[in-house]
Every structure is written in structure tokens, then in C-alpha cells.
């Protein structure tokens, strides 16, 4: 994840509902829990708070389909970083992450895309803190 901080990412037209925004940069917000800001380079008012899903769901897994592997020119698992978009709710402990549509990035090229997982049991609004109140 750290290798992506301040790097320019090309997400093509893959962010659902925001296909007009292509270039993003990653800003660090919190070094411990790993909250990052995925900020549009084209419109300062478009940004998403993202995290590594594995930080909150250690067992999270999905299979990348051939289409994504080919499209992002992924050669090996180490080339890949995964973010999920966080929806901040009130109170903060009720915030959610989207485990259905992770953002997959080739860290070598900076190309990435938001992918929808078909036939997954994960939820679009999965609890950010599934077991604890606010993680405290």
C-alpha cells in the first residue's frame, strides 16, 4: 500500500458512477489503521476514503477473472494492491466498506479499476468494524 502513496493512478473509466474521473492520487490519512484518501486529480471535490480490506477482514478473498488480469497486465500476485471504498456513517462505528466492488491496482504500472465480484457472498455495505464498537 505504502508504495502507492502520492503516486498517480489511472483508473480508466472504472469507478462506477464516476466514470468521467480517471486519474487519482493516494494520500495517507492515518498510518496505523491504514485509512487513505483516493483523491481525483481532475476534481478536488471528488475523493474516497479507502482502506485495505484485509486489514478489517483478514479472510477476505476473491478470484481475479481473466478480464481484469489481462486488462491490468498483472503478471504475479505481488503486482496487485487492493483497496475498498469506505462509507463513513454516524456514528463512525457504523461505517461500512464495499467488499463487492474492490479497486484492484497493478502497483507496477499504476493502472487500476473497480471490479464487481459476481456471485459473491460479501456485501456492498459490510461493517467496517464487524465485531467491536469503533475498534476501540
Amino acid at each position: 500500500m505504502n508504495v502507492l502513496i502520492n503516486k498517480k493512478l489511472d483508473l480508466g473509466d472504472s469507478i462506477f458512477g464516476f466514470t468521467e474521473f480517471r486519474y487519482f492520487r493516494v494520500e495517507e490519512m492515518d498510518d496505523e489503521a491504514g485509512f487513505l484518501l483516493l483523491q481525483s486529480e481532475e476534481n478536488e471535490s471528488v475523493g474516497f476514503i479507502v482502506v485495505s480490506p484485509f486489514h478489517f477482514y483478514q479472510d477476505y478473498e476473491f478470484k481475479l477473472n481473466d478480464e481484469v488480469i489481462a486488462g491490468l497486465q498483472i503478471e504475479k500476485p505481488d503486482d496487485v494492491a487492493v483497496f475498498t471504498i469506505v462509507t463513513i456513517n454516524q456514528p463512525f462505528s457504523r461505517s461500512t466498506i464495499n467488499l463487492v466492488a474492490p479497486i484492484v491496482i497493478n502497483i507496477k504500472t499504476g493502472h487500476g479499476r473497480q471490479v464487481i465480484l459476481n456471485d459473491t457472498s460479501y456485501l456492498i455495505h459490510s461493517a467496517l468494524f464487524p465485531t467491536t464498537e469503533g475498534g476501540i
Binding site: E32, S45, F48, I85, I88, Q114, G134
Partner: peptide, 25 residues
């Protein structure tokens, strides 16, 4: 997913909430 993305757009309020949580933790 589109609706979720739209709802997730970071705002000054959500950024403040996150920063407060980080501080409290």
C-alpha cells in the same frame, strides 16, 4: 455499487469524523 460510491464521496464532515476517530483511538 454506483449508489454506494456516490454516498461514499468524502466530505469535510466525513473527513472530520475519521480524524476524530483516529485521535480518540
Amino acid at each position: 455499487v454506483k449508489a454506494s460510491n456516490r454516498k461514499a464521496i468524502s466530505t469535510s464532515t466525513s473527513m472530520k469524523d475519521l480524524k476524530e476517530w483516529v485521535q480518540s483511538r
